[in-house]
Write a protein that binds this DNA or RNA. Sequence first.
DNA 1: GATGAATGAGTCTTCATTCAT
DNA 2: TATGAATGAAGACTCATTCAT
Lengths: 228, 228, 228, 228
Amino acid sequence: MLARVSSTPTFRRLPRAVREQQMLDAAVKVFSRRGYHAASMDEIADDAGISKPMVYAYLGTKEELFIACLHREGTRMMQAIAGAVAPDLSADERLWRSLRAFLGFVGAHRDGWAVLYRQARGEQPFAGEIAAMRSRMVEIVAGMLAHTLRAECREVAETELEVVAYALVGATESVADWLVDHPEADPEQTATRVMNVAWVGAAQLLAGTSWHPPTSQGEAPPDAPSAG
Amino acid sequence: MLARVSSTPTFRRLPRAVREQQMLDAAVKVFSRRGYHAASMDEIADDAGISKPMVYAYLGTKEELFIACLHREGTRMMQAIAGAVAPDLSADERLWRSLRAFLGFVGAHRDGWAVLYRQARGEQPFAGEIAAMRSRMVEIVAGMLAHTLRAECREVAETELEVVAYALVGATESVADWLVDHPEADPEQTATRVMNVAWVGAAQLLAGTSWHPPTSQGEAPPDAPSAG
Amino acid sequence: MLARVSSTPTFRRLPRAVREQQMLDAAVKVFSRRGYHAASMDEIADDAGISKPMVYAYLGTKEELFIACLHREGTRMMQAIAGAVAPDLSADERLWRSLRAFLGFVGAHRDGWAVLYRQARGEQPFAGEIAAMRSRMVEIVAGMLAHTLRAECREVAETELEVVAYALVGATESVADWLVDHPEADPEQTATRVMNVAWVGAAQLLAGTSWHPPTSQGEAPPDAPSAG
Amino acid sequence: MLARVSSTPTFRRLPRAVREQQMLDAAVKVFSRRGYHAASMDEIADDAGISKPMVYAYLGTKEELFIACLHREGTRMMQAIAGAVAPDLSADERLWRSLRAFLGFVGAHRDGWAVLYRQARGEQPFAGEIAAMRSRMVEIVAGMLAHTLRAECREVAETELEVVAYALVGATESVADWLVDHPEADPEQTATRVMNVAWVGAAQLLAGTSWHPPTSQGEAPPDAPSAG
DNA sequence: GATGAATGAGTCTTCATTCAT
DNA sequence: TATGAATGAAGACTCATTCAT
């Protein structure tokens, strides 16, 4: 009603970019706490200190909003990893540093990427996003492995390489989940353990020391599918 | 409208046990297809060819129903594994067979256990169930590892053992997820790959060939937490 | 399947009358505990140790069942009162004994008549029943008052008499409610108090010592109905 | 479809306060007509000319809505009473005017306070509210009685006073119920009758003319509790 | 730009009641 | 007689989403 004298600057009317970050912050927080479905747009808007229509205007649908969160957090994580490896390091060293950076990041933001990621895996609408993210990680890992191999003048089939890379990423994801659920765990130590179990295994494998199923006679491939 | 000729007996008014299985079948199917939240009790009831109140009467709440599904499928999976290993086999052999049985089972029921399990991991209400299931699997694996070790007269700290077991289980879970998403993949071959990557790594590790982080000078632990 | 040897007589197949009483016992109990709506036919049947269709077969609809409860408890209460007054007593004495018997009964069965009655007053479907019960009580009271008056050779308009009787019954009902909610209260003492407050007032009134509104000038009857 | 000529302004999008009153109006109406349980939120929303979610947004749960109705009507009634008594009147006069105002109010809004109150008495969830309301009324009455007594330099035990006040309030409530059920009755006349019966009784009592149970020989306190 | 007001649609859940055995 | 099996109908409550100001 009255002309408001803006001696103390109220922080309304912020530029779009800032507002968007506030919203994303709130969204990440709420999605992490409640899960995708249990999170309500109301709570997110409230938490961002903004009205609901603004959220829709800036970030779109709930689904889009969730994806935006996933992207922002994913990007941050990727940057944390990229920032930890220098291109002049040996492939092994880069491997180790990436892993450590990854688990370090997850451990430091226990309500960020990993939680959203875990949730997204269970929900269909995000299948595409998830596949894309995982592909990116698999590529990086595969690249490192390939580098190592090439350095040793060894050749491994493309497919084989990808599968191994995939397995390693999967294992690491899983450990990341575990890390989120165990706040008392030390990321660095955890990284060491993973390096030991999985990556050493991979190294062995790629070095040629592979394992083969025993050729047992007469054993049937298990699980003849029972009736539905 | 028409006088129904009851040559084929109508399947109304079935005994409880039968109906419960029908319901669980339907529930597993729908939960897998749609995801926990998107699945509606209506669709489940319809799919089971029965009215909603029966579902509530027999299996309880949606949450309880989901847990019941998880249990049934989990139990079936465990049985598939148990049926694949004979107690007189060597620990190594049992390890391999368990893994193969597990991935075989997952591959054969791509809309069963693995999908439910994956969904449950993202939702808070099922945290307890998930933890319990994983514990059971970790125990089994740890038991096998311990057996192997003891056979070789080697000792490993209890904690270390558990962590390794956990990592292996996590990796395997993750590969199971992958298997579900890749219908063209061959479970047996996939099992071999996992055995190669992860379990060979574990073997190496337990054999003493462990890996240690390089003592690099001056490198800071990454990711000084940025502002929230 | 097998012919059951009934050496120990199981108490199934009871005569109808007994079964009905069991059901009514259970119904009164559950209705009192939960209230009419919150009570479920399931719980009543369970509590009676009988299957639901039997309840319907014997006592009919939930509404009818509730009315049956109301009747049985009302009759018991009436009998308790009738048993307490001998016809050769003076009207005053009969009045006092009735009141005492009534509150005594209510106090002794705190989950019986009074609770059902109170619930019934709020729900439309029972309006008829309630009206009938109250009529019966009002009649009794009015009869006693009339007797007293006639003994004193005094005449009071029929209408006036009924209204006074009604007021007394209403007051007593209300105190009965209170008694149910105050288990520590002593029925006998409470009866004395009611006798003091209400019945003494009635006596005064009927004796001619009546009160008249002050003839104030210019005061408007309050509450000119507001909008709405 | 047609261009709506907005000569008469459509009453959509009203300010919150207005809508809340509309909703409460509708709620009181429907609760009175149907009873608490039989009333559906749908009907209330319809009757208020608004969608259900608005009702939940503004007034909360069905239970909360009912309590809000009870409060609004209770407050209105209290105000009607307060507006009828001037502080400079004698205690007797204030007593009479309060009673008249109360019954006048009840009579003028036969689907308002009294009906809700009667319903609330039967349902557990509202026990607290009811107790609070009655307490307030008992206090007022007790205050008036105390004033009268003090004016006559008489002393009565605190407890006794409260009980008498309670009895009077109970009696009045009950008569209010009756009034609601007898639309043809005249509130003013009814008030006079109550004043005669109950309050004159109280006056007698407090004046010392009390009644005592006859010391009859050999009569047992009735109703030795039967089984069950 | 920003928001209070508003809703359509849908979900879980419960319950009185009745077949078919 | 007695009951397990079965359901139609309805109700409370929530939420993502969008006008109209």
